[in-house]
């Protein structure tokens, strides 16, 4: 698992993907930091964090699109699957490498917070709550992206599929509320990433939401393992 993790992490930075992802992420973060906090002389990062919900969801598929597609295309999956490594180790190693790059990205906000602490009062406890929320959200979206990449040999399909799912997760509660069926509304509210995330930018760490995101991560890692297992029997 460690070998795969290290190789993948290195892979992000021997190809331009890691750099492009981080550059785009930092640029957008920088803009909202300026527009949401600095411009008003505020040390409150809640606008940045609520915007990052959308940004993360849309950029994360870039990190996962090649995770398993390339293995199939290069036939390197034959090496991985005939090595004495478990499928779980393989999938989790890959997932953690994407999560690492994502985490490097979101830690730029710590720099902002740190810089602002010199010029005004900042609330670190609220900030860590925010960061935890963003981390959990990212982990969930990445696990879904990885699952999609296990289904296809084409990076573009994996990425566009990821965007589609991200969009659906953004819109699902408004879709649900426009349908006049109560149980459907409740259901969509419950599985909406937006609803689950909403409390974090306010500085609230909602335990059910934490469990929700962790369950999504677990579920899609599990499903990815099953897809690889199934291919053997195909």
């Amino acid at each position: 698992m460690l070998a795969i993790y290290k190789r993948e992490l290195k892979g992000y930075f021997t190809t331009p993907i890691g750099f492009i992802y981080l550059a785009a992420f930092f640029a957008i973060c920088g803009f909202y930091w300026f527009a949401g906090s600095l411009l008003y002389g505020s040390s409150d990062l809640s606008l940045l964090f609520s915007t990052l919900f959308t940004i993360s969801a849309f950029l994360a598929p870039l990190l996962t699109m090649r995770l398993l597609t390339e293995e199939k295309r290069n036939k390197t999956d034959q090496l991985l699957l005939t090595s004495p490594v478990s499928l779980t180790g393989l999938v989790v190693g890959k997932f953690l490498s994407a999560l690492t790059v994502y985490t490097i990205g979101i830690f730029i906000t710590a720099v902002y917070q740190f810089v602002m602490s010199f010029f005004g009062e900042v609330q670190w406890s609220t900030y860590w709550g925010n960061l935890l929320g963003l981390f959990l959200l990212g982990a969930a979206v990445l696990s879904i992206g990885m699952f999609l990449s296990s289904l296809t040999e084409n990076q573009v399909i994996a990425a566009v599929g990821g965007f589609g799912v991200a969009l659906l997760l953004l819109l699902i509660d408004s879709l649900g509320s426009s349908v006049g069926v109560t149980w459907l509304q409740e259901l969509t509210m419950d599985i909406s990433f937006y609803q689950q995330y909403a409390d974090f930018p306010l500085g609230l760490v909602n335990i059910p939401s934490v469990i929700f995101f962790l369950s999504v991560v677990f579920l899609f890692n599990f499903l990815t393992i099953r897809v690889l297992e199934k291919r053997r029997w195909g």
């Binding site: 070998a3 290290k6 021997t14 190809t15 290069n74 036939k75 090496l79 991985l80």
Partner: peptide, 20 residues
């Protein structure tokens, strides 16, 4: 089963670790 973006040396080291 080769990774085109790795050097031969990196690749063999990776395989070494992979196989433990």
């Amino acid at each position: 089963p080769l990774y085109p973006d790795m050097t031969v040396e990196e690749y063999l080291r990776f395989v070494w670790e992979l196989k433990g």
